[in-house]
Design a protein around this nucleic acid. Structure first.
Length: 260
DNA sequence: ACTAATGTTGTAGG
DNA sequence: GCCTACAACATTAG
């Protein structure tokens, strides 16, 4: 569920209610999701700020950082109810924060600082400059779609927004990355920025699991032009949207508007 | 029974 | 180093 726009909405909704609040205790119900040893590191810490890099949520504490990645089905819920999928429970002053995750691909951990895996990420997709983006495409001989999913290339774009951005830029997902230069690169850059901004404004895409920390769904799924629309008419030309597999992920595109 | 799902990582081979 | 394919992680839904 969680790509950059969804994670951004979780961060914004979290900020409204837990900034400056102390974590009285943290309890892991799944050692897959959070090591039991981190319970002790988190207890008694105060939440100083909440940020996002790519799809990672960074909760800065008075000692260290609480890093959360939602994986495929992770949710952070302020005052949520405990259920079969609750994996971590944070007792806060006067409220609680629940991390739930059906598939348990998400991770919750304490780190002493922001290095580690966050430093291995490429520039955040909402902060990268047009120049930086164009330069990053140079020398990349692979196809653009899998490259957009590579978090060391740019951080935050996932399967939905990669497909939606390529449609807006009128680029076929198999286009060789280094051949995207000049006007086409500028178009792709703008398409990524615009689709992410719009999706953030719409509260993200709620397809099966996603809700923000207040339990609210997004509405950007109603504006998807290709993702999940195989066989349905292209909003631009009416041609049936096609779905292919690229880099072991599905890719949706309009065969008429996005020429190879 | 089989397949696909908003993600990431490790391994192997070219 | 870059690129691709495949498997794995765990669970649900169609």
């Amino acid at each position: 569920m969680p790509e950059l726009p969804e994670v951004e909405n979780v961060v914004r909704s979290l900020r409204r209610s837990v900034l400056g609040v102390r974590i009285e205790s943290a309890r892991s119900l799944s050692r897959l999701v959070m090591k039991r040893a981190d319970e002790k590191r988190l207890a008694g810490r105060t939440i100083r700020s909440i940020d996002r890099i790519g799809k990672h949520i960074l909760v800065r504490l008075d000692d260290g950082v609480l890093e959360i990645h939602l994986g495929m089905t992770g949710r952070l819920l302020v005052d949520g109810e405990r259920n079969a999928y609750t994996r971590v429970i944070f007792a806060l002053q006067g409220r609680r924060l629940m991390y739930e995750d059906i598939r348990q691909f998400g991770r919750v951990r304490w780190t002493p600082d922001l290095r580690e895996r966050v430093s291995a990420l490429g520039p955040d997709a909402m902060s990268v400059s047009a120049d930086q983006f164009e330069r990053a495409l140079r020398g990349r001989r692979g196809r653009i779609k899998p490259l957009l999913l590579n978090q060391t290339f740019i951080a935050g774009v996932g399967n939905i927004y990669a497909d939606e951005a390529l449609f807006r830029a009128r680029l076929h997902p198999k286009t060789i990355a280094e051949r995207i230069r000049g006007e086409r690169a500028a178009r792709l850059y703008r398409a990524i920025s615009e689709v992410l901004s719009l999706a953030i404004e719409q509260g993200g895409s709620s397809i099966s699991d996603y809700v923000d920390a207040d339990g609210r769904q997004g509405s950007f799924q109603l504006l998807h032009q290709v993702y999940g629309r195989e066989g349905q008419p292209c909003t631009g030309c009416g041609t049936a949207i096609r779905r292919i597999v690229l880099g072991q992920r599905s890719a949706h595109y309009c065969p008429r508007c996005q020429k190879y």
